[in-house]
Design a protein around this nucleic acid. Structure first.
Lengths: 132, 132
DNA sequence: CTACAATCTGTAGTCGCTACAGATACAAGA
DNA sequence: TCTTGTATCTGTAGCGACTACAGATTGTAG
């Protein structure tokens, strides 16, 4: 199986420009060129890029993805622990982000409710921003 | 009251570079210069920049902040409704983001638990990324 | 007089793409 | 044969919201 970049893009649902970008930053290995010009890919490349896309969908940074690719390629007892480390750290970040957003939501919702109540002479939304 | 940029930075807890950036992109008005060189600020500038920083802490984009600044400066019946529109749209975005992150959290946590259970021969974390 | 802090302008870097411009190669249709 | 269209190529610039310099200049304290 030998496919061009357009076909790889279709199969992985990854933008062509993004594929070239990943190659440029060294996340993907440099693709072989047909006639020194056109990139050619095989089954392994499809798998690797799908892996990358899936990790990105799960919110991992490209640096994380790099580490995970390495782990996926290596074997041994340490792999599980290391992968668990990357995943746990990521989940911790996500939880922190969720907590942040929830407290934002609370403040904003309260201000909107206050505004809807319409008791105040000036707009409570603007007041929230103007300070305590 | 006439203060320099360093003092403004201290009073608003906003980076000096960021203040200059805000001026450059037209979010803040161009500051008067003392001797044609050093920026000078007054009480109104402190208030405005605090407003901006508070809005940013609440997650509003700079474009939103621009709109909110305009609303805060204007008077009339429309202000409340317009402010409510900006706030509601923002809350909706935050809720969507929270939902996204929660579903990420679920997927990741399940994978980690599966890994901890240790029933599988290969690492479930890597498998999650490798696709079904 | 000298040292140091504060300020100035302008530019480049961050992250993860995305969108061009302009060149080149190849196949199908008139 | 010529034209049209598609696919690819490289290289660069843009997004948002800063942040971090370099290198110049000015103000203040000892």
């Amino acid at each position: 199986m030998e496919i061009a970049i357009g076909e790889l893009s279709r199969r992985t649902e990854c933008n062509i420009e993004t594929i070239r970008y990943y190659e440029r930053i060294g996340l993907l290995p440099r693709a072989e060129r047909q006639g020194g010009r056109f990139r050619r890919y095989g089954a392994e490349d499809v798998g690797r890029l799908r892996f990358v896309r899936r990790a990105r969908q799960l919110g991992f940074s490209l640096d994380d993805v790099r580490a995970l690719l390495k782990l996926a390629a290596s074997e041994g007892d340490g792999v599980r622990e290391e992968a668990r480390g990357v995943f746990s750290a990521h989940v911790a970040q996500i939880r922190a982000k969720i907590a942040d957003l929830q407290s934002l939501e609370r403040v904003l919702t309260e201000a909107i409710d206050e505004c809807a109540a319409g008791r105040r002479p000036s707009c409570p939304l603007i007041e929230v921003l103007s300070g305590q």
